[in-house]
Amino acid sequence: MQHITFILNGEKQVVNADPSSRLLDILRDTLGMTAVKEGCGEGECGACSVLKDGKLVNSCIVPMGSVQGAEITTLEGLRDTAEGENIISAYSDSGAVQCGFCTPGMVMAAAALLRENPEPDEQEIREALSGNLCRCTGYNLLVKGVTLASERGKEKGIWQ
């Protein structure tokens, strides 16, 4: 066990954990961040997506040993910001939410994309979401949701 210090959603956290434990387990079990879902545990589905130093990563394959000093953002840290709310509303209004299990990861993937590229085209959206599996929607309405978030976010000046 080791003390691991990192920033979670803007606040400093110190956890006592085995460096090989998964960030996902620490977020969910120790810190109560249950917006982060476990869909596969093998980095294939994206349900556990979080931002690590601003980059989208699968928290199920990130060992705590890699988190020392890092800045981690989960949906809990994003959902009440203008940026997070914009994506959440856009998905909700586009009919992109069905069973909802992939949706938190889809919000994180959209946030990572729109920060880099606030006006993505359909192909860019599809590429950005390509590591996030969804079995309900067939993806059409998710893609539309990201487009809507882009349009609304531009009006609101979210990425300026």
Partner: peptide, 20 residues
């Protein structure tokens, strides 16, 4: 169309599934 009643809870990660 309406916005689904469960959409915001699910998209904001507030929806609690069994493992949560």
């Amino acid at each position: 169309p309406v916005r689904r009643l469960d959409a915001l809870d699910k998209a904001s990660g507030r929806a609690i599934y069994i493992a949560d």
